[in-house]
């Protein structure tokens, strides 16, 4: 009984030392467990990206579901030219674009404000509307009011921590376009949040 815990820890450690590429290779050979490990590794990070791209937890969950299903179906075509994270992000961006197209067919409205949908992430300990909370609401609003293309680059850069070339790979556009979109998106954010900037 005493030896079970160290064994479990060793197994956990071993699973952490396996790279994403190795897991994907195992999954492609039919090891479904390897793909589930990839889900566990990337679900949280991708969920945050999805939430910032689509604006609600429910929609983010749907987009993420479609992302992993798409990844499972397409993993045979992964050529290893990018990291697994970038590849998954690319699928997520595509699914998000689909989501926006579907939604724009139904109705044409800007992303709802987080507070208005009850989807605002929990700001714990907030008993009154503080300056910080006000600022967060304004930042959230400014982000949601960006065009989908501009929001994509800001979200991938700031929340995904991606380089320009990774974003170009994920979005399927040239690096120069990434840079110009990011510049314009930040200009729009600067204008919207001017009061908070030095």
């Amino acid at each position: 009984m005493m030896s079970e815990q160290p064994e479990a820890n060793a197994a956990e450690e071993a699973s952490l030392t396996i790279t994403d590429d190795e897991l994907l290779a195992d999954a492609r050979r039919g090891d479904e467990g390897a793909f589930h490990q990839l889900i566990d590794r990337h679900a949280d990070g991708l969920f945050r990206l999805a939430f910032r791209l689509v604006g609600s937890t429910v929609d983010a969950e749907d987009v993420l579901q479609e992302t992993f299903v798409g990844a499972f179906e397409q993993m045979g075509r992964f050529e290893g030219r990018s990291t697994v994270k970038t590849w998954l992000s690319r699928i997520l961006v595509r699914q998000t674009a689909r989501f926006h197209r579907r939604r724009s067919r139904r109705r044409t409205v800007a992303l709802p404000l987080a507070g208005a949908t009850g989807d605002e992430p929990d700001v714990r300990g907030r008993t009154s509307v503080s300056d910080d909370a006000n600022r967060r609401l304004d930042v959230d609003r400014a982000l949601r009011q960006l065009s989908p293309e501009h929001r994509e680059v800001v979200v991938l850069r700031e929340f995904g921590g991606m380089s320009y070339s990774e974003m170009a790979e994920a979005l399927g556009i040239p690096v120069g376009t990434v840079e110009s979109r990011l510049h314009r998106a930040r200009q729009a954010l600067k204008e919207a949040l001017n009061d908070y900037l030095p």
Binding site: I39, D40, A43, D44, F47, R48, F51, R52, T57, A60, E61, L64, E120, P121, D122, V123, R135, R136, V139, D140, L143, V154, E158, F159, R186, L189, K190, L193, Y196, L197, P198
Partner: peptide, 19 residues
């Protein structure tokens, strides 16, 4: 400052049920 403000937004976590 812009990067700080954006990354300072609360990050939601995926629920166990969604996972």
């Amino acid at each position: 400052a812009l990067t700080r403000m954006v990354t300072d937004l609360p990050a939601p976590e995926i629920s166990g049920a969604a996972l």
